[in-house]
Every structure is written in structure tokens, then in C-alpha cells.
Simulated scan of single mutants.
Amino acid sequence: MKKRMFFTLLGCLIIFGGVFGYKAWVARMTEQAMSNQPAPVHTVSATEAAVTTWKPVISAVGSLTAVRGVDITAEIDGRVTAVEVDDGAVVEEGQVLVELDADGLRAELRGAQAEARLAELELERQRRLRQQNANSESDVDRAQSQLEQARARVDAVRASLDKKTIRAPFAGRIGIINVDRGQYLDIGAGVVTLQTLDPINVDFNVPQQELSRIEAGQPVRARVDAWGNETFTGQITAISPKVEQSTRNVAVRARIGNPEGRLRPGMFVQTAVQLPQESDVVTLPQTAITYNPYGDSVFLVNETQTEGGETQLTVERKFVQTGASRGDQVQVTQGVEPGQRVVTSGQIKLRNGSKVKIDNTPEPTNDPSPELGNQ
């Protein structure tokens, strides 16, 4: 019994040993076959590091405000008898917008004018009596006072009557009219907004450390999401004389031409103050940089000679330090020299010493100025 079990175990060991041995032999032969194969050549795109002249800018975000803007309200109550303009109309200074019912005030004005005329006649009579020494000086003074009061009453009624006609206080574009004919308006009720759109102000803040670099008259570029990458140009008109204690920022106002009225008050805007200085920097496309927590790197393309004398391109990973970015370009402050070729796409399959071939169709974007302020 024991002898039979011994031979059974021996047979199992021989079988398992053969299986594992065969697998080890196959693995070794596969490894040898793979090691004898040539390293794959990876297709990448590449470009040369270039020296570019950049003008420094101060970027900020802000909002558009009208040079002149007001929400027109009713200064006196009354019923609307006429709306003289359409929504969104361009109006001139003094143009009539809305008329309120003024019949009662017109009647009151006629009564006040009659009282003023009567006071004038009374004053003339008192003066004649005074010349005849038939009254006292106080009677003349009293008549003079009554005339002045009557005239003041006329002026007050005329002022109220004038408020029944709501006019544009300045030229500009009105918004949506909030009243209808026949509607009764209380004092202070909103009628319509009026904004001067050309030119238009851009209000933004810059950090206090940038205060020495900005001044009135410097060019400013602005962009709003509504018009994509289109930029609008203007210049700084005012800088606040104080620094906000809560943010340590300085308020800046620029003015931009807006003849077509495409920019509207309240729009969010990205701005860039163009500074006069210039600097030469080494730049690469953004896609050339591999960003990692342990450091940013690029793959440099080197030329090597094979045993047969052929030129072979290989890559070398190089850690770099980057600076400011503009559009599709990023500044490289250390690690890459001008003229060195750098891989711009296909890095994920590369390692040190990998063989590559360059195919720049299509070529990665390398526009320095799709973003605001980089033109």
C-alpha cells in the first residue's frame, strides 16, 4: 500500500515538474525572441525651441460700466397718456419719452397765474396810494410779498407740470420700457433705463505691487465671452488714489470705443494692460510640457549614428522650469536652449532612449496670441 502511494506521488511530481519546466522554457525563449527584435520607432511631432519677444502685460478681470447711465423714474405721480419711444431706441438729450396726464396741473397753473396777476395789480395800486401818502410803507411791502408768493406758486406749478413730461436727461440708448399707456405711476416708479454706450468704461482691479507699472494713457485690451476671441482696445483714464484695505487692490478705469454698441454695461470682461517694456524669452508649445507633481519635463530629440552609419533619432527626458504662458505658448526659463528640438505630441509612449520619427502633420497649435493681451 505504501509502495503504491509512493509511486503515485512520484508520478505526480514528474508530471507537475514537466509542466512547470515547459512553461519556464517557453518564457525564456519568448524573452530571448523579444530581446532580439529591434526597438519600435514611435511617431511623434516636434518643434524647435524659439526665442520670442514678449511685451509684459498685467491681466485682470472686471466689468463694463456706462460712461453715463441712469434708471429713469417718475418724479411725480400720474396716469400715462403717451409713450413716445420704442424699446431699445436711440434718443437725444431732452427727447420726450413718456407723457403723464397734466390736465389738473394746467388748471392749477391758470389759477396761480390769475392770482399772480391780481397781486401785481394790488401792488401797483398800493404804490399809487403811497405816492399820495394814502397808505403806509408796510402796505406796499405786504403787497410786494403777496406778489412774490403768487409768482413762486406759479413757478412751483410749472415745475410740477414740467415733470409730467419725462425726458431723456442725456443722449443714449434706452432699454425696455416698463410702463404702458393708461397705467398709473407713483412717485419713484421705474420707467426705463438709459445708457450711453459709446464709449464705455472698463473697471477692474490690480494688485498694489503693480501700481508703479501702470499709469493713465497706457493701452488696454479687453475681451468678453459674448464675442469670442475678439479684442477691444482702449486706454487707462483713471487710477484710484487709494488702495482697498480688504484686498490691497487698486481700482483702475479704462475707456474703450464702442461705436457698434456690442459691449453692454454689466458684462464680465477680461483685461490686459500692455506695458512698454519688452523681453526675449524661450518658448515652447503648451503640448510639449509634461506636467507632474515631481517636476515638469520635456523630451528632447537627439540625433545618433547607427553601426551602419545611418542617422537615428532618439529622445531624452529633461526636467525644465516654466514661466508665464500666452496663448498656446509657455515660457521655459531653464532646461531648454534655443534651437533644441522638443517633442510636442506622442510623449505618453516614450521613455529615455526611445527611437522616434517626426511627423508634423498635423502640427500642434503654437499661436502666441489666441488669448487676451498677447498680440
Score class of each variant (00 low, 15 high):
32 Q>M: 13
19 V>R: 07
63 S>R: 12
33 A>F: 05
66 A>G: 04
16 F>L: 10
46 A>C: 02
34 M>A: 14
12 C>V: 15
35 S>N: 15
57 V>M: 13
18 G>I: 08
64 L>T: 01
50 A>W: 10
64 L>Y: 06
39 A>Q: 11
32 Q>P: 08
50 A>L: 12
46 A>M: 02
45 S>T: 07
23 K>T: 07
49 A>Q: 03
12 C>F: 12
35 S>Y: 06
29 M>F: 06
53 T>N: 10
41 V>S: 02
13 L>T: 12
43 T>H: 02
61 V>L: 10
62 G>T: 03
52 T>D: 12
14 I>W: 05
34 M>K: 15
60 A>G: 01
56 P>W: 01
36 N>R: 12
62 G>S: 04
33 A>G: 08
30 T>C: 09
41 V>A: 05
60 A>T: 00
39 A>P: 02
33 A>M: 12
14 I>L: 15
23 K>A: 07
62 G>H: 02
58 I>E: 01
28 R>F: 11
49 A>C: 02
49 A>M: 02
52 T>M: 07
16 F>N: 03
15 I>S: 07
43 T>P: 04
54 W>M: 15
34 M>V: 09
20 F>S: 12
12 C>E: 13
66 A>Y: 00
34 M>D: 10
59 S>K: 13
49 A>V: 03
36 N>V: 11
36 N>C: 08
36 N>L: 14
30 T>I: 14
27 A>M: 09
53 T>A: 04
61 V>G: 10
62 G>L: 00
